[in-house]
Write a protein that binds this DNA or RNA. Sequence first.
DNA 1: GGGCTCACG
DNA 2: GACGTACGTGAGCCCG
Length: 941
Amino acid sequence: MTFGKGHHLHLIDGSAFIFRAYHALPPLTRKSDGLPVGAVSGFSNMLFRYIENNNGADAATHVAVIFDYSGKTFRNEIYPQYKAHRPPAPEDLIPQFPLTREATRAFNVSCIEIEGFEADDIIATLSCQARDAGARVTIITSDKDMMQLVGGGVEMLDPMKNKRIDSEGVEEKFGVGPNRVVDVQALAGDSADNVPGAPGIGIKTAALLINEYGDLETLLSRASEIKQPKRRESLINNQELIRVSRDLVQLDCDMNLDFTLDSLEVQVPNVEDLVGFLAKMEFRTMLKRASDRFGIDAPNLPDAPAGGGGASIAQQAAVPDAKPFDLDAYEHVHTIGALERWIDAIYERGYVAVDTETTGLDAMQVDLVGISLCVEAGQACYIPIAHKAGDDDLFGGDSLVEGQLPMDLVIDTLRPMLQDPSIVKIGQNMKYDAKIFARYGVTVAPYDDTMLMSYALHAGIHNHGMDALSTRYLDHTPIPTKELLGSGKSMITFDKVELGKAIKYAAEDADVTLRLWQIFKPKLHVEQVTTVYETLERPLSPVLVQMERNGIKVDRDVLSRMSNTFAQKMAGLEAEIQELAGQPFNVGSPKQLGEILFDKMELPGGKKGKTGAYATGVDVLEDLASEGHELPARVMDWRQLSKLKSTYTDALQTFINPETGRVHTSYIQTGAVTGRMSSSDPNLQNIPIRTDEGRRIREAFVADAGKKLISLDYSQIELRILAHVAKIDSLKQAFRDGHDIHAMTASEMFGVPMEGMDPMIRRQAKAINFGVIYGISGFGLARNLRIPRKEAQGFIDRYFERFPGIKEYMDETVAFAKEHKYVQTLFGRKIHTPEIAAKGPQAGFAKRAAINAPIQGTAADIIRRAMIRMPAALADLPQDVTAKMLLQVHDELIFEVNDDACDMVIEIVKDVMENASEPAVKLDVPIEVDAGIGNNWAEAH
DNA sequence: GGGCTCACG
DNA sequence: GACGTACGTGAGCCCG
């Protein structure tokens, strides 16, 4: 709706508020770094109260805060002394000016300042425009200069006295109506602004004269008629000064503004912006108030915060009044009374940092050794449970060390707290601890994870391991694990660590975790990634716990048979290769192979890398093979088999859990900077599929008896996202119409019909489509398609010509990265790109990564959202149907389902996946999911 | 432990 | 004008 009748515009004089706040409040400073924030605080408070009270009959429909722009204005040109006697702003107020603008924006209120103009003129222009449009206007200020604007629906509101001023109010003050206020001011002058006026004439006299003569010009022309000599002389002798004064006080109603009144419509504050700002400023009371009002968790500001924006990392790390780490102060909990006291302390606060110590790294197999807790920086304990003496008693087992509570008692005592929805459990990589606890019958919930917080905050800046985070943010290096357990052959397990040392190490970890949490929690708001953390990171972790615990059944016999076959084939190839080489050598050694190829056989194309070794990668071997050389071709075959055998058919067998008969991968939620996960121990995200021989490995991944595996994967999700973010209408339409997207691209580019297209042309278009997602280069495309570089560049040029939006997207993304040092997904995930400023070859790298990250990252966010919603969606299934989510492979999810329920489950899962972006993001392209069913992964995919 | 190679999306 | 480039991962192997 266009601004006009029925609307009510509030214009807030920001500068006036700043000064008032500054003088009214004691000189507050931000606790962490001493930044003066008194005026910002007062200003923010005022704005907060304003917003809370903006209801009822006088409520604004449109609002703006207007600020003075520092520097000279046109009035200084008319009269150099204008406001010249004003002392400069106090030193501790100056840094607060930009912060008040930030505060205004944080409250989602329009914030206006224009170079060369005072706030008064902007207010005048806006109020005239609004009045002419037939709307109501309220100018919120105590500056009497603004009274000339009153009338015709315009009123003033003096916030000091909370008094509305209409035309009558103006007359009370100036003795004339609003339209003559300027005349009175011109005569009376204004000492505050150094406006001269006519000497000896004040407001009273001025009003009297104006009322008598009608207006200023008439008065001046008839000045000689004035009876009182003093007044007469003053007017006659100071005509010029009076006219200048009039020009100074006359507000400019005709400024050219580059925005419309419509754009000032009242907005609901964005909670994240607001809370982020208040947290950054460390305004505890307002933070609480905002949190209450918007029904969110108040971010915890640490008592001794680690510094805010602007400070260097080193300064941030050096917590000025932080408690030092005292490893001797940690408590050894070995009585039930002590344990209960800790639980009481936890309930007093509502949160606790938890860490588990175990006999190894595989959470599906290791034993729990002890638990550490921390409720406050420096206040941590360790509860040893299963530390062993290492004395190999008569029965072949080690005896438990003294000073430990029984396992069952500890678990049973802690369980209610660990499962209590009102107690936040805090961990570093809590997925691991949650998996351990799950095996002891405890479902830890809810929990925060400092590793995930760091990931939401710092992806692309640094890694998120505890030692690194502690060193960086707490300026404290924890005891290295190596120091405790040793390394290599003589490494011991944690249960053999001497109790005294174990207490220090374990409790320290909980202490570090709690302190990191105290720093990261408010920082999430400041960096505006709270939503990312709370909707994409925290809720995914328990889902992964379940998936990893589910595992997938792997048939050892299938793998072992394949291993044997591969071994035989490899032996045959090895003999053949050595025959061709004319000597025995280690085929698996790139170095030896290089020497055979390029020194002994003197084949062309030998290129040495930086280590001085010949390169023998596939592309090199392929080139040689295509020239008809037999040996490199055989080496390629051998390598393929070697890879399949060592990485898959052999290695996978060692990962079959003896208890479950299944393979339990571990997902690293922070594995890729883009928001993708990675999988390890074993990596189940790179099981072969591209060759027939490799693909058969998937036959070893099987469904349990009476069940099937189903696989659902997003179709072309990254290209769809590209079409959306780059706003390519033809691509979007092709997706809506369900066309073959690569054929359509080819058709656009080369002007050939989609029907009966040459597969070669389509292949090239497909390569370009993918290239675009990766930040295409002529070189890369040329290499991929094995065509001359010039030709590849020609393709790219034509592509950009046909789809100009793509080039625009790329340029805009790179520009954004350069400006902000990060890029974002559609869901707000930040991927930091510090390298973007680099010079040299890294610059190209960084550019392409910046282009790719929003696309890959958005796709990653979408599947995460689907995964997070999956447990609830599957919970609606009938009682007798079990459907378990087992694996994620970037755009694919694998489930294990009762074989008679596959269709039902597919329907549900598909629905969740296809609508996962909503309601947060509405894509302009449909998202489609393909499904497959089988007894094993090869069949299902 | 770094570099190379290669498996996946 | 030369250089060096597709994006994101994890793992096994060789070799110093």
